[in-house]
Design a protein around this nucleic acid. Structure first.
Lengths: 337, 337
DNA sequence: GGCGGGCGTCGAAGCGCTTCGATTTCGCAA
DNA sequence: TTGCGAAATCGAAGCGCTTCGACGCCCGCC
């Protein structure tokens, strides 16, 4: 193993000088700096992570807690996780992967053992048991999603209320007067993931503002449920000409059911969905949608965390990311009556 | 922070004794052991990970390299990753998440800095640039998937050849005499992911052994491609009554296309798929399939790695996991002619 | 010409743990 | 009672790094 002493000897300086070159915490003359840099390269030196952590009480590692069982779309989860790793590397940090099967004990462990110096928690529920633990540990943290009581915590999420509003406005602008929200299965709402409620209220509010008639349907993912929903829409609610679907896996079977019922999209019915961006291209017609900005969420979470790590106490407690609507081919003016 | 000295004082022993209680590397009397354990609990002591790594030159962390761009089904990827984390925790190790956007440099970095003491690499390609790096670093490692030249490396994967054989045998047992392999898009084969070829050869071999007529079709995921494939099968290859689908995302559109063409499954056509287990229940009819044992693969990879970490040099270089066929409702004897 | 003050560098003291030899203790045979 | 080996415990030396105070040097100023 190459140590800092080896580098120092090679460059003809003291170990502390090498350390200062590396950290930039003291002024070093350009000449020395370059000589040391050359020695580092020549010897292929990498500081020993453990020694560094011990001496500086900074591990330069953050923990990422990923749920085992999730309400989120799995590919999105991975996208966010990857974005977090990439962003963390950009700030010279690595990412330790934690699951929930150790329970909150895992959080205690990595924090108390100084394995990590900050935490990002994904897929937060309304009454998430991890929230109080984070408060208690007093370790910098960022949650992706909002618990019921976010006091004292830093949270990031898509502004689902605004997203639903964007969908409604888009349909209203096209001339639709009756819109439905096809939400996630009823269970999700009850289990207490905040975003479902926020979507709902944003939907209702925007519809009221635009004077639209509304309908709200949870919908299971299964094939049959999609058909039932499609049929009900056509027979019992002909006034509904625009759909806001906030339930990604339902989209393909729903489209199939509509096709089966000879309902054309967007001729007879317009659809705008909220979900992972890649869904748009995966179905036909190409979906108009409000994508979940996974990459951006991950990046932002890391930026907030780094702010807290650097002792910046102006880090906002709540960050709602602005949604954008991506036009596709699944929305058009309603059919003439 | 609670240190080992605090625990020692509290228990009335020396720090080294506490260390030996923790590691079990020397005999400690039951009385002392219990007293120390009580002190540890009372003070909530967790050893400082960095200090431990420094002194013992063992970080008790393994790196998991996850591809950014993947040929694997994403949920499977995550399942394997989670299984790895869980299994690693079972061996008192944590998992550091690495992406490939640092290139192989990231591997160098975490290895040379002693951040991790072993590596698991996922989604290995035939000419994977990480393979030579792993050999060179001389750090215990396990690959999930096989490179073209696995010499000197430890690899784990599903036995895709046997899996394809299992599918063919199942169809042959039911009386089918003409079977087709619906494989991944052509690009995948060329890009050099070994499993596609192994599936192909297993398929051909088993079919030859059973005297079946065969057809091999790559198939894109898109809706249109699925329809085209379905139509071609019915019009040009009526002798084909059994399908082996090794291309998970194609299954739903393919089923839809067949339904659209009034081909019943399994009445007119039997389908057996290789892919993530959860696919089976997600479509109708419930699929007969050879699931990819994500959980088991992750666990096995960790076990092999721990073997290498403990200096066990009987760790096999190659581990092919035996496939199992799960009967569903998508296969039946072929229709009478 | 002397002196104060940066700037650049060094030396040494830990950070908390493991580990190895040394030391103590104990049980038991002589 | 003494001696001896095994069992149990201790003390101290690092592991490789950061950091803080100290030091030397050179420059500019009076």
């Amino acid at each position: 193993m190459v140590t800092i002493a080896d580098v120092a000897r090679h460059a003809g300086v003291s170990p502390s000088t090498v350390s200062y070159v590396l950290s930039g915490k003291r002024a070093i003359s350009a000449a020395t700096r370059e000589r040391v840099a050359a020695s580092i390269k020549a010897l292929g030196y990498h500081p020993h992570a453990g020694a560094r952590a011990l001496a500086s009480s900074r591990a330069n590692v953050i923990a990422l807690v990923v749920p085992l069982r999730t309400d989120m779309h799995v590919p999105i989860l991975l996208q966010i996780a990857m974005a977090i790793v990439t962003a963390a590397r950009g700030h010279d940090h690595d990412v330790l992967l934690l699951t929930n099967d150790e329970g909150t004990e895992g959080l205690h462990r990595v924090a108390r053992s100084a394995l990590v110096d900050a935490v990002i928690v994904m897929d937060v529920e309304l009454h998430d048991p991890r929230a109080p633990v984070l408060r208690e540990l007093g370790l910098p943290s960022v949650l992706i999603g909002f618990p019921a009581d976010p006091a004292g915590l830093t949270c990031v999420d898509l502004d689902f209320s605004a997203a639903a509003g964007l969908c409604v406005d888009h349909l209203a602008d096209l001339g639709h007067t009756g819109v439905a929200l096809i939400g996630p299965p009823a269970g999700v709402l009850e289990r207490g993931t905040g975003f479902a409620r926020r979507t709902l209220s944003g939907f209702e509010e925007a519809a009221a503002r635009r004077g639209l008639r509304t309908l709200v349907r949870p919908c299971e993912t299964a094939h049959e449920a999609a058909w039932a929903t499609a049929k009900e829409l056509r027979t019992e609610h002909p006034e509904i000409t625009g759909l806001v679907v906030h339930n990604e896996p339902t989209v393909p079977p729903l489209l199939e059911a509509l096709r089966g019922l000879d309902v054309t999209v967007p001729g007879d019915l317009s659809i705008v969905a909220m979900g992972p961006q890649d869904l748009s291209a995966a179905v036909s017609p190409r979906l108009t949608m409000v994508p979940i900005p996974a990459e951006e969420m991950g990046r932002r979470a890391v930026e907030l965390l780094m702010g807290k790590l650097n002792g910046d106490d102006r880090v906002p407690g709540s960050t709602l990311m602005a949604p954008r609507l991506m036009a596709g081919d699944s929305t058009a003016p309603p059919p003439p009556r």
